[in-house]
């Protein structure tokens, strides 16, 4: 059985989806990820979907589920790198991905997560947006 690798980076979990998910794989990811959140007591989940060309309502539901389940376990979920065509299609489809935060890329996603859970680290010198280094 194929699996989507989940990387642990300090307080966060990082998932990079490189293939178009078929249903079983997506459902496995959902449960694996939630188990990992519990196991490592993670406070943030970062899902990189920059290589995903299609998000239908099923995939949208999986993402929403992950966000809601993580939230219950006190972890925030950020989806990063959504393709423009995917965003336009989701809006047209009427799927706003409620409860899921988004960011343009992994870097900004990390910054967003850190700003959301600033009570974790004493040092919150990292700004909310890295482009503020003018």
């Amino acid at each position: 059985m194929d699996k989507i690798p989940i990387l642990k980076m300090s307080d966060f979990l990082l998932v990079t989806i490189q293939v178009d998910l078929y249903d079983q794989l997506a459902e496995n990811l959902e449960s694996d990820l939630i188990n990992m959140v519990k196991k490592y007591n993670s406070h943030g989940v970062l899902i990189d979907i920059s290589a995903v060309s299609i998000i239908d309502s099923f995939m949208g539901r999986i993402l929403g589920n992950i966000a809601m389940m993580s939230k219950i376990l006190d972890a925030e979920t950020v989806v990063v790198g959504m393709q423009p065509a995917v965003a336009i299609t989701l809006i047209e489809l009427g799927l706003p991905l409620k409860g899921v935060h988004s960011a343009l890329n992994v870097e900004k996603g990390m910054a967003l997560l850190r700003s959301k859970i600033h009570n974790i680290e004493q040092d919150i010198s990292i700004p909310a947006d890295d482009s503020s280094t003018e």
Binding site: S53, I54, I55, D56, S57, F58, Q83, P84, A85, V86, I88, T89, E92, L93
Partner: peptide, 17 residues
């Protein structure tokens, strides 16, 4: 175009499901 492609494939995916 890419956007129309994505819309079509998403629609196809919905209907197959």
């Amino acid at each position: 175009g890419l956007v129309n492609q994505t819309k079509l494939i998403t629609a196809a995916s919905e209907l197959v499901r």
